[in-house]
Computed example of a mutant assay.
Amino acid sequence: MTSPSRRRPAARLPGGATKRAPLVLAALRRLYPDARTELQFRDPFELLVATVLSAQATDVSVNAATPALFAAYPDAAAMSLAEPEDIEPYIRSIGLYRAKAKNLATLARQLMERHGGEVPNDFDAVVALAGAGRKTANVVLSNAYGRPAIAVDTHVGRLSRRLGLSAQTDPNRVEADLMRLFPEEDWIFLHHALILHGRRVCLARRPLCGQCALAEFCPRIGVEPR
Rank of each mutant, 00 (worst) to 15 (best):
M1H: 09
T2P: 14
S3F: 06
R6F: 12
R7Q: 13
P9T: 04
R12I: 12
L13N: 15
L13I: 14
G16A: 14
R30Y: 01
A50K: 01
L53G: 00
A55W: 02
Q56M: 11
A57T: 10
D59S: 03
S61T: 12
V62H: 09
A71W: 07
A71K: 11
A72Y: 01
L96W: 07
A101C: 06
N103I: 08
N103M: 06
T106G: 03
L111I: 05
H115N: 03
G116V: 00
P120A: 07
P120L: 06
D122A: 12
A130H: 07
A130Q: 01
G131F: 02
A132R: 08
N138G: 08
A144P: 08
Y145P: 10
Y145G: 12
G146A: 01
A149C: 07
A149F: 08
H155N: 05
L159T: 02
S160G: 15
R161M: 14
L163S: 04
L165Q: 14
P171K: 09
P171T: 10
D177V: 15
L178M: 11
M179L: 13
F182D: 14
E185L: 11
W187S: 04
F189E: 08
H197A: 00
G198L: 02
V201R: 02
V201A: 02
R206T: 08
Q211C: 05
A213H: 00
E216C: 11
F217E: 12
F217M: 13
E224G: 09
